[in-house]
Design a protein around this nucleic acid. Structure first.
Length: 774
DNA sequence: TTAGTTCGGGTTTTT
DNA sequence: CCCGAACTAA
């Protein structure tokens, strides 16, 4: 077991003390995954049966990679037998096996966020409630929070505080929606994401023999990213670990970024209470990042009040100082980043995969993508609209789900008239109403109780045809292999034909996506995973797998690409060069976090996570204006920038009297022209932020201030209307040029100007202080 | 019933 | 800006 020698003493202690409860508090980049990997490898080499190890990870990809590493260490494929995966996928598997105990079909459907939102929408409508008040997203969050805290509809009604919250908010009927929502899920044989954990708790609570079975089965429990577990998950772990208490949780309170999803840092603090004689291991040496990055990250996280004291340090090089780059607009921010990556790549002969661009919201990826495409830099976006959320994929999957579980209402509604079969809204409405009346599922109304439907005979025939088709699929569920049945369904429903007929580029790509899905199913059918015990996987096995896939789980054949993702998605990853973009007030930190200290602190932890992804170099960027809701907004730099201890960071110079000089920071300004970007440790920057604290109100007055500033400084410069195509102008940096085009409306007029020295540039008139030459 | 259009409203992060 | 709901015409 010489592999253990590569660990430092704290890591090694954490890896080899396998008995009893232990908690590993692991600073960013401190080799947490290594400890977890080695600990499991060590267990197996000591003779523990892999089937008796349960390891809960944050993504399925993390699980897959860890299994691979363990296999390499122990030199056998035994590792594949470990129960390793996300909470959701592991317990979905267990629920499948135990489903009938809680009166669910073993083929229960898993509703994703969209499905459950649609269901809520129809419930609100059916109950005749105002959907402005009972917004589906709001209702969904409220119910999700309840479920994550194991509050049943009944407990919800009896909870005075919750009920009065709803009352005050003008939503007294929320609890009724919750009741109905659960009822409908049950009737549809479906669970939402939260149910997978909730129902597991019910199962372990109401069936002692089941609890005992799994307590005995799982002799060793490991939980990664413990800081991101919610109460529901906490309780599952506590129950399963109660017998052997061989529980190891690993986490870092400073990286807790899923509070919005019910994650509770208290779980880390409670550990002490639940297991008083636990072992605590602190991993504080960072192996990932340079001294500058570690120092910067530490100086930021110190600003949080709620935290466990930790002293993360590194013996790595000093490294490069953190850059802050200001840009005029979101598009120019993208151009800057793309140009900068291009340059860094050439200077140091680096791979694309050394770079990562991190942002707060998915919508920010667009300007980055466009700029990268312009320079032909290959990139890959993680997250956003994932493959499995695309319409055509969801449509086909809905057929599969309906085949496995005909009561699945959301799937039924999705496909009953796609491709068009003449079963329209009216018919569907009639079925729903009657189904609610008789307390039956829609499917039952279309089969057993079809006579009771008040529809004309033509429609009845159409319904009967649909039912016959679906029944024929269901009949083949057990006999046919997943891949064969999947293809059969795609063809005989007419869905494939429909997409094939569409020759638009989008249609083409939709068709390709379907092919890709079918290929994926084929691959799945041929994989022979231990959980199938040698039997061939069916379509419903595939569905379980697919419902819980994360986008991060997607593999890419060619992985030498720049990575683009949200900071949330970057958790656990590392890159030599990291660009954190959009560092603006109201974006990062998010506008919605500004009212609560706890939420602002979560944003700060998010920033901490972003910084600590980097090994060598961090570049922070922000834009002075950004398109949001389709219109231009002015932005202030994020408070997080100035929270970094100034010795680790280079701030841009801000010349207050000449805002247009920010052109110095534009990509073309910096590109090639060496000293173009002049930064100093910005005292101006500081001064500005001080004034911000005085107006401690919201964003609005600040933005107004910024806008009104502009005209007062534009005496000699071009104002709207004073320039036409052909006008000769002069720019402080680019020299003489000629206007070749004008677009946009005042005050956002954009001029395309040709400069002999640098070529064509797009300039916003109100920023670029152009002087008219003739 | 369908397809095509307009209109209004909403946008954090994710299993 | 992008989506879905509502409306309109065939």
């Amino acid at each position: 077991m010489d592999y253990l020698e590569s660990l430092n003493s704290a890591q090694k202690e954490a890896a080899v003390n396998t008995e009893g409860p232990s908690m590993v508090i692991a600073g960013a980049g401190s080799g947490k995954t290594r400890v977890l990997t080695y600990r499991i490898a060590y267990l197996i080499q000591k003779g523990v049966d892999p089937f008796r190890i349960l390891a809960l990870t944050f993504t399925n990809k993390a699980a897959r990679e860890m299994k691979e590493r363990i296999s390499n260490i122990i030199g056998s494929s035994e590792a594949r037998n470990i129960w390793m995966g996300t909470f959701h996928s592991i317990f979905a598997r267990i629920l499948r096996m135990e489903a009938e105990k809680i009166h669910y079909p073993s083929n229960f459907s898993i509703y994703d966020t969209q499905d459950s939102r649609n269901l809520l929408k129809s419930i609100v409508k059916e109950m005749g409630l105002d959907d402005k008040l009972y917004k589906p997203a709001f209702v969904q969050n409220r119910i999700s929070a309840a479920k994550n805290n194991l509050i049943s509809p009944k407990a919800y009604r009896e909870h005075a505080e919750i009920m009065s919250d709803d009352e005050v908010g003008g939503r007294p009927k929320l609890v009724e929606i919750y009741y109905e929502y659960n009822k409908r899920l049950f009737k549809a044989g479906a669970m939402d994401f939260d149910d997978l954990l909730y129902k597991t708790n019910v199962l372990l609570r109401d069936f002692p023999e089941v609890l005992h079975k799994y307590q005995h089965k799982f002799r060793y429990l490991l939980v990664d990213e413990y800081q991101d577990t919610n109460f529901s998950q906490y309780l599952i772990v506590k129950k399963l670990a109660a017998l052997n208490e061989n529980l190891c949780v690993v986490g870092d309170d400073a990286q807790s970024i899923y509070g919005f999803r019910g994650a509770n840092i208290q779980n880390i603090l409670n550990f002490k209470k639940d297991y008083p004689d636990y072992n605590l291991y602190k991993l504080e040496q960072n192996y990932r990042s340079s001294k500058n990055i570690v120092g910067a990250a530490n100086s930021v996280i110190e600003k949080n009040r709620d935290r466990i004291k930790k002293d993360v340090w590194t013996s790595n090089d000093e490294g490069e100082i953190i850059r802050v780059v200001r840009n005029l607009s979101d598009n120019e921010e993208g151009l800057f980043v793309a140009n900068d990556i291009f340059q860094e790549k050439n200077n140091a002969q680096l791979d694309n995969k050394s770079f990562s661009i991190l942002y707060r919201t998915n919508s920010q990826s667009r300007s980055m993508e466009e700029a990268l495409r312009k320079l032909n830099i290959p990139y890959r976006i993680y997250g956003g609209l994932s493959f499995y959320q695309r319409k055509e994929i969801k449509d086909l999957l809905a057929y599969y789900r309906l085949t496995a579980n005909p009561n699945d209402e959301e799937s039924l509604k999705r496909v009953i008239n796609y491709p068009a079969r003449g079963i329209g809204k009216t018919t569907l409405e009639k079925i729903t109403i009657k189904a609610n009346e008789l307390d039956r599922s829609m499917w039952e109304m279309m089969t057993t109780y079809r006579d009771q439907l008040d529809v004309n005979s033509g429609t009845k025939t159409k319904l009967a045809n649909f039912v016959t088709m679906m029944k024929s699929f269901s009949a083949q569920l057990q006999s046919e292999e997943a891949a064969a049945l999947a293809e059969h369904i795609a063809k005989s429903t007419g869905l494939l034909r429909e997409l094939y007929a569409d020759k638009t580029p989008e249609g083409l790509s939709r068709f390709e996506n379907i092919q890709e899905l079918l290929n994926g199913i084929k691959e799945f059918t041929e994989s022979n995973r231990p959980e199938f015990d040698g039997r061939k996987p069916t379509l419903s096995d595939f569905l379980l797998d697919v419902a819980l896939l994360t986008d991060a789980d997607q593999n890419d054949d060619d992985d030498n690409k720049v990575s683009l993702m949200t900071i949330h998605a970057s958790k656990g990853l590392e890159f030599p060069y990291v660009y954190i973009v959009g560092l603006e007030e109201n974006l990062f930190p998010s506008q919605l976090s500004l009212n609560e200290r706890s939420e602002l602190e979560e944003e700060r932890r998010l920033f901490y996570v972003a910084l600590t992804r980097a090994e060598k170099k961090v570049t922070l960027t922000y834009a002075m204006s950004r398109y949001r809701y389709g219109s231009l907004n002015y932005c202030e730099p994020s408070r997080f920038i100035e929270e970094i201890d100034t010795k680790y960071v280079d701030l841009p110079e801000v010349e207050e009297r000449r805002p247009a000089s920010s052109f110095d920071d534009t990509p073309w300004g910096g590109l090639g022209s060496g000293g173009g970007n002049s930064y100093s440790r910005g005292s101006n920057f500081k001064r500005k932020s001080a004034s911000r604290k005085e107006t401690s109100g919201g964003a609005v007055p600040r933005n107004l201030k910024r806008v009104s500033q502009v005209p007062t400084t534009s005496r000699k410069t071009i104002v709207s209307g004073s320039v036409v195509v052909g006008t000769k102008v002069s720019h402080a940096k680019f020299g003489m040029g000629k206007v070749v085009n004008l677009e946009g409306e005042s005050p956002n007029e954009k001029a395309t100007v040709f400069f002999p020295s640098v070529g064509q540039k797009q300039l916003l008139l109100k920023f670029a202080k152009l002087e008219i030459v003739e």
